[in-house]
């Protein structure tokens, strides 16, 4: 049997992470979570996920800093990152590396699953 695709969710909102984890697991994905950018970076290196869902506004190393560190690591470069932007996040500054897609919060579960499937399919998973 094919292995389960692994998804890393990085978001500081504990409740939201729980719900996203539940949704994705119901679709037979393996889900790893991190609650800030720093933790997310470690997990990205150790777990080698197939896809990352990244919240841009977080305390303790926000999405921008995460992306900067992340972009420097060539072993991580192939992992698609879906950036979750909050309602009015200022995207005045350019994001430090290529994001596969920006998804605006609040994210409906059906949309979330559709987007995740779409990007995994592009990777052939």
């Amino acid at each position: 049997m094919k292995r389960k695709p692994k998804i890393l969710v990085i978001d500081d909102d504990v409740d939201l992470v729980a719900v996203m984890k539940g949704t994705l697991e119901s679709k037979t994905y393996e889900v790893v979570v991190a609650y800030n950018g720093k933790e997310g970076l470690e997990k990205a290196k150790n777990e080698k996920p197939d896809l990352i869902l990244l919240d841009i506004m977080m305390p303790v190393m926000d999405g921008f800093n995460f992306a900067e560190q992340f972009g420097k690591d060539p072993s991580l470069a192939k992992i698609p990152v879906l950036a979750l932007t909050s309602f009015s996040d200022s995207l005045g500054q350019p994001f430090p590396f290529q994001v596969a897609e920006y998804l605006r919060k609040p994210l409906k579960p059906k949309e979330l699953i559709a987007k995740v499937e779409e990007h995994l399919k592009r990777k052939g998973l």
């Binding site: 909102d13 409740d15 719900v19 309602f87 996040d89 609040p106 409906k108 579960p109």
Partner: peptide, 23 residues
């Protein structure tokens, strides 16, 4: 301020959308 005021609302909306989507 923006983050702290909006995050709970955004999360709440997400939760409601789970109910609305029949999850």
């Amino acid at each position: 301020v923006a983050h702290d005021l909006q995050s709970p609302l955004v999360a709440t909306q997400s939760f409601i959308s789970y109910i609305l989507d029949g999850f």
